[in-house]
Simulated assay, not measured.
Amino acid sequence: MEQLTTGAGVSAAGKQDISTLDGWQQAGKWFSYGGHAIFSRMAGQGEPLVLLHGFPTASWDWSRVWPMLARHYNLLTVDMLGFGFSDKPRNYRYSIEDQADLVQGWIEGLGLPGIHLLAHDYGSTVAQELLARDQEGGLGFTVDSLCLLNGGIFPEVHNPLLIQRVLGSPLGGLISRGLTRSMFERNFCRLFGSRNPPGQQEMDEFWHLLTYNNGRGILHELIHFMEERRCHRNRWVGALQNARQPMRLISGTADPVSGAGMVRRYRELITDADVVTLRNVGHYPHFEQPWDVFTAYRAFRKQPGLS
């Protein structure tokens, strides 16, 4: 892969400081995908664990659970095209398949023979596409396990917020360009459970990531993934049903978009479903309750054949 730039946020002790959003960015690297700059982060040691983020946020979502996971695994994550610190081109045909191409090319370029996947929301759908390709023999590496957090993996029970529905409508471009901070906060905060709602600093960080590189102007283009989920439902749900790899779902059941209903559907459709539910936790369990997510994931990886 073509390397563009490298930054490193260094603390007084000589270690990268990722406790702030600026430190997270400075500790990252960029590579080129189709002429566009893609932000990535890598840290830790052990087996490769690829973390895939959700919509409309970025890899920063993983920052609270990152130090815990990095003690056990070689962590790799990206801001997918159109998100976070990566480029956000206008008039681009954003799609789940294209994001899967990005992730696949990145991993193959790193020469990794196999990876484990931990994915959330939008990233869960990218993971489903990668899983389908793995089953078809279309990857240059193996997917050795898959752990999913809250996401619309079954479109028939996905319950998007009104603003998401409007963004996907013919009015989406106007709403996207006219999105205000107060509109964003009002809708975004609805996704969180009662145990740990985001504070003002966290909202500042999420808003900065959203608006970086004029990100508001493309939200209506990114959100076509909801229609893609419906169009490719059989392929992506089938990938989960046909998976030979160990899988686990960790779900915040207070999520109004993809919480308890998604858990019920997962148990209906996935044989011997492995599910961990987190009460009073919303759509971002890894940000709301990172310790609970870490312990649930660590227990998953300690199962026979995965440790």
Results as ranks from 00 to 15, higher is better:
residue 76 L to M: 12
residue 251 S to T: 13
residue 298 R to F: 13
residue 279 R to H: 06
residue 147 C to S: 15
residue 32 S to N: 13
residue 178 G to S: 14
residue 177 R to E: 08
residue 125 T to E: 00
residue 115 I to C: 01
residue 109 G to C: 03
residue 201 Q to Y: 05
residue 23 G to M: 09
residue 55 F to K: 02
residue 24 W to L: 07
residue 152 G to R: 00
residue 286 H to C: 04
residue 261 G to I: 03
residue 252 G to Q: 11
residue 284 Y to S: 07
residue 84 G to A: 09
residue 180 T to L: 11
residue 219 L to V: 12
residue 37 A to N: 14
residue 111 G to Q: 12
residue 259 G to S: 10
residue 293 V to F: 01
residue 128 Q to F: 07
residue 127 A to R: 08
residue 41 R to M: 13
residue 87 D to F: 10
residue 279 R to L: 02
residue 72 H to C: 07
residue 182 S to V: 10
residue 296 A to T: 10
residue 301 R to H: 06
residue 3 Q to A: 13
residue 298 R to I: 00
residue 175 I to C: 05
residue 296 A to N: 04
residue 39 F to K: 07
residue 88 K to P: 04
residue 124 S to M: 04
residue 35 G to S: 11
residue 234 N to P: 00
residue 216 R to V: 10
residue 229 R to P: 04
residue 221 E to K: 14
residue 30 W to V: 10
residue 177 R to L: 07
residue 105 G to L: 00
residue 77 T to L: 13
residue 106 W to K: 06
residue 257 V to K: 00
residue 109 G to K: 01
residue 188 F to W: 15
residue 134 D to G: 13
residue 208 H to W: 13
residue 268 E to T: 08
residue 52 L to E: 07
residue 42 M to I: 06
residue 148 L to D: 03
residue 144 D to F: 01
residue 65 V to F: 04
residue 122 Y to C: 01
residue 11 S to E: 02
residue 167 L to D: 07
residue 60 W to C: 01
residue 242 N to E: 11
residue 90 R to G: 14
residue 145 S to Q: 05
residue 264 R to C: 04
residue 35 G to Q: 09
residue 163 I to N: 02
residue 74 N to D: 14
residue 106 W to H: 05
residue 57 T to Y: 02
residue 243 A to I: 08
residue 97 E to T: 12
residue 46 G to F: 09
residue 122 Y to T: 01
residue 222 L to V: 09
residue 54 G to Y: 10
residue 186 R to M: 09
residue 183 M to I: 05
residue 11 S to M: 03
residue 27 A to M: 01
residue 285 P to H: 03
residue 2 E to N: 09
residue 42 M to W: 01
residue 304 P to V: 07
residue 249 L to Q: 03
residue 62 W to D: 10
residue 207 W to F: 13
residue 114 G to E: 15
residue 297 Y to A: 00
residue 124 S to G: 14
residue 13 A to P: 00
residue 280 N to E: 15
residue 171 L to V: 02
residue 161 L to E: 10
residue 162 L to Y: 00
residue 130 L to R: 10
residue 48 P to C: 03
residue 27 A to L: 01
residue 93 R to M: 01
residue 67 P to F: 11
residue 168 G to Q: 12
residue 126 V to T: 06
residue 155 P to V: 03
residue 291 W to D: 14
residue 227 E to K: 15
residue 118 L to E: 00
residue 254 A to E: 12
residue 126 V to N: 00
residue 292 D to K: 08
residue 108 E to G: 06
residue 53 H to P: 12
residue 301 R to M: 15
residue 10 V to Y: 02
residue 142 T to V: 07
